[in-house]
Nucleic acid binder design. Structure first.
Length: 423
RNA sequence: GGUGAGGUGCCUGAGAGGCCGAAAGGACCAGUUUGCUAAACUGGCGUACGGGUAACUGUACCGAGGGUUCGAAUCCCUCCCUCACCGCCA
């Protein structure tokens, strides 16, 4: 949610920036400010009425105490009429606030000035590429065929147990996933991230604070009997640790990481492009989260970007980094880098990580603040990124590393796996 | 699931219709002093939304929402949550 102050002070800038996201903010922001004027006026009126009522109540108390009952009764009547008035004003204020909030939550985050213009993924800016696209041997297969060839992943069994999008991993690939998780967590810890094991179900309040609710309600699995939601990413519980928290400035940046399974209903996305591991309802991911000082958050973003690049480099996977264009960015993000690895057998790039700076967009809802220089609470910036999501990494490893003899395990994972070849 | 207790500021914890945005202690910050793995003293120390160049000031907030009352942290109702014990159990 954008800050009201920002809109008040820099409406034109906000409108300009939002154009990059192809969002015409003018009508809605105009309305927000109009409501804001009425709101402030109403609050002024209400405060005055309440002040008078408070005053009268005090006087009545005094009069009764000193035995002047008749005078007290007179004032009593007066305050009764004030009460009706204040009731009306209160209702008006509440509905104005609700209306304003309703408009505000429809406005996406204003993108950073570094965000390229554009509408579709084709307009994303390829800012970096590394690694050689492997040349596969004759008869190389996509990962879903490798999965059955070596009896690694059983998609049909997952259907039997749960449904499509819930695969069963077996033997060496199960071990490979465990290895990846441990490797990612070890790396993150070395990079200064505190490891967190959060709950993987969250309540409504948490869902609202990070923005999954109410908009993306249909994207989360919902346990209605307890009114809890399965998390779509560890970002939700980890970021919510800092909901309604005022941290000390010297604590910044706060660096947390966590491994969790992630659950996504992915309602509406079916078809050939979701084959195999490409899109699942349940998958594993290690997430990194940082809470940064507003002056430092873009440095932090670059640091996180470099961190994720290191992981892919060490896994020996060819990857590229895209700076997302305005049209392809998420609602909440101010600047996003997507990481894609090249899947040689599918001959396409697969998104494996997304690293974003949300500036104050999340912290405004979270009420995540730090004590600024003057001792006043200031909204912190939040950032997060996948480091990394497993299924597509697994898919790429299986495909890119296949040889006639079997699938080679990346060197850094061998100590974690205890084997170097899947055959 | 059953029974009981309870939700007050960063923490502990008082308050039981007006003197309460809220005692006291701790933590924290600033200063004074004595000096030395620190102590003592003094002062400061919530958040949000308004008004004001500012000093300052108005309102709201004691789990949430209603109600009673001239007046509610305090009384009543509903809901939520937490803790303890029992039951069940990885």
């Amino acid at each position: 949610m954008l800050q009201l102050n920002y809109i008040r002070e820099k409406k034109d800038e906000a409108i300009e920036r939002l154009k990059i996201k192809n969002f015409d903010a003018k009508p809605i922001l105009d309305e927000v400010l109009e409501l804001d004027n009425v709101r402030r006026k109403t609050q002024n009126e209400l405060d005055a009425v309440l002040a008078e009522a408070n005053n009268l109540a005090k006087q009545v108390g005094e009069l009764y105490k000193t035995g002047k009952k008749a005078e007290g009764d007179e004032l009593k009547n007066k305050s009764t009429s004030l009460k009706e008035n204040s009731k009306q004003l209160e209702d008006k204020l509440a509905s104005l606030e609700a209306e304003q909030h309703k408009l505000l939550v429809q406005v996406p985050n204003a993108p950073s000035s570094k965000v390229p213009k554009g509408k579709t993924p084709e307009d994303n800016e390829n800012v970096y590429q590394e690694g050689d696209i492997p040349k596969l041997h004759e008869g190389a297969k996509p990962h879903w065929e490798l999965a059955s060839k070596y009896d690694l992943i059983d998609f049909e069994l997952g259907v039997k147990l749960t449904g499509a999008g819930f695969p069963v991993y077996k033997g060496k690939v199960a071990r490979l996933q465990r290895a990846l998780i441990n490797y990612f967590l070890d790396k993150a810890t070395k990079a200064g991230y505190l490891e967190i094991q959060p709950p993987i179900m969250v309540n409504e309040a948490s869902g609202y604070a990070t923005g999954q609710l109410p908009d993306k309600e249909g994207q989360m699995y919902h346990s209605t009997i307890d009114n809890l939601y399965l998390i779509p990413t560890a970002e939700v519980p980890i970021t919510n640790i800092y909901r309604d928290v005022i941290v000390k400035a010297e604590q910044l940046p706060i660096k947390n990481c966590g491994y969790t399974p992630c659950f996504r209903r992915e309602a509406g996305s079916y078809g050939a492009h979701v084959r195999g591991l490409n899109r699942l309802h349940q998958f594993d991911k290690v997430e990194i989260v940082q809470i940064a000082h507003p002056d430092k958050s873009y440095e932090t973003l670059e640091e996180m970007r470099e961190y994720v690049a290191t992981l892919l480099r060490e896994l020996e996977l060819p990857f590229r980094i895209l700076k997302l264009c305005g049209g392809d960015m998420s609602f909440a993000s101010a600047l996003t880098y997507d990481f894609e690895t090249y899947s040689a057998a599918q001959q396409k790039w697969l998104e494996v990580s997304s690293v974003s700076n949300f500036e104050t967009f999340q912290s405004n809802r979270l009420k995540l603040r730090f004590k600024g220089a003057e001792g006043k609470p200031v909204l912190a910036h939040t950032l997060n990124g996948s480091a990394l999501a497993l299924p597509r990494i697994v898919a790429t490893i299986l495909e890119n590393n296949q040889t006639p003899e079997g699938i080679k395990v990346p060197k850094v994972l061998v100590p974690y796996c205890g084997f170097d070849l899947i055959n």
